Simulated assay, not measured.
Amino acid sequence: MTFLTSNLLADGVRIAYRDQGRGEPVLFIHGTPSHAGEWRHIVPRIEADGYRTIAYDLLGYGLSERPAHRDTSVAAQTDLLEAVLDTLSVDTVNLVAHDIGGAIAQRFAIAHPERVRRLMLIDTVSYDSWPSATWRKIIDEELDDCASLSQEAFNTLLTRQLTMTVSDTTLMTGELLHDYLRPHQSPLGRLSFFEHQVRHYDSTYTEEIADELPSLRMPVRILWGERDQWQPVTYAERLRDDIPRADLVVVPDAGHFVMEDAPERVTREIGAFLAEPVPSQEGGDPRRVERGR
């Protein structure tokens, strides 16, 4: 699929990105094992609603640079997000973030609350919720041997994991599955996957900010697939309770990649959230609204 259209240089590294439309900026941060293409059904529709939409592949992911000696941890990706916004001359932004992208967004919103107008977290990692049991097993028992995997063995491993991301497993087949596997169809691609992504599956990055979540004052909406096999809904409920003004929307019959299971619903929820006025960030009672079951 062709989704990202250009490249930019931010903090000395090349980032593949898309920046289209006019209006209030909305930046989408993808998860793992993934790339910005996961937003392909969502972004054009939000753009059509009158927003400037920005999406990019995280460093070491997808079409972005895969540097041999550069930190691609959640903390480093958070710093790079700031550099991307500065490069694009974006002062304040609405963040829509999924999975590990949600960890980046949480950290950025805590560190730079003045730059985040609204925050939407979609099936995000949080607290000690990650890595999932299946990824933990791979990290503990197989990570050091993964670099030597054949292409066939690698594809089998990643296909098994990707199939767990959707409620409707028939979706993760054919061309869609190929698109998720495509960045890793070479020795460099396989090595990069484990070095830039899997090696940084570390809950330290979310546990160390857990006590700061109550400091967030921008509107926050949490969107979750009810059948998420990697991030149970209990973590969504915990986030809702810890973040002032946060509300929670649970999407039935959807998994961890809720944007694949229910793209229309995800688009509607993002659009509705962006259309809501931003209240004063001073005082007020936190909202506790649960919808969509």
Score class of each variant (00 low, 15 high):
231 Q>N: 08
213 L>A: 02
210 A>Y: 07
23 G>M: 02
136 R>F: 01
84 V>M: 01
68 A>F: 08
118 R>I: 04
234 T>K: 14
1 M>Q: 02
148 S>F: 11
280 S>C: 11
4 L>W: 03
261 D>E: 12
93 V>A: 02
64 S>M: 01
91 D>R: 14
40 R>L: 02
194 F>I: 08
99 D>C: 13
47 E>V: 08
161 Q>L: 11
79 D>T: 12
289 V>G: 11
141 E>Y: 03
51 Y>P: 09
133 A>R: 14
70 R>E: 00
223 L>I: 06
54 I>C: 03
168 D>N: 12
18 R>D: 00
99 D>W: 12
255 G>T: 10
191 L>G: 14
222 I>G: 08
44 P>C: 05
30 H>W: 08
155 N>I: 07
67 P>C: 04
41 H>G: 06
72 T>N: 04
293 R>S: 14
143 L>D: 08
5 T>V: 00
98 H>W: 06
180 Y>T: 11
88 L>M: 05
94 N>C: 12
16 A>P: 02
122 I>E: 15
68 A>I: 02
38 E>K: 00
95 L>V: 07
187 P>W: 01
18 R>Q: 02
180 Y>W: 12
221 R>K: 04
127 Y>Q: 10
292 G>T: 09
185 Q>T: 05
190 R>V: 03
179 D>M: 10
23 G>C: 07
83 A>C: 05
56 Y>K: 00
279 P>T: 10
140 D>M: 02
35 H>A: 14
67 P>K: 05
273 F>R: 13
167 S>D: 14
266 V>E: 10
40 R>I: 14
24 E>R: 10
177 L>D: 15
49 D>W: 03
62 G>S: 00
20 Q>K: 13
59 L>F: 01
264 E>V: 06
273 F>C: 14
98 H>L: 03
259 M>C: 11
101 G>R: 05
256 H>L: 09
141 E>D: 05
215 S>H: 09
1 M>V: 03
75 A>V: 15
158 L>E: 06
196 H>T: 12
27 L>D: 07
69 H>W: 03
195 E>Y: 05
70 R>N: 00
30 H>I: 06
69 H>E: 07
196 H>I: 03
63 L>Y: 01
269 E>M: 10
96 V>E: 01
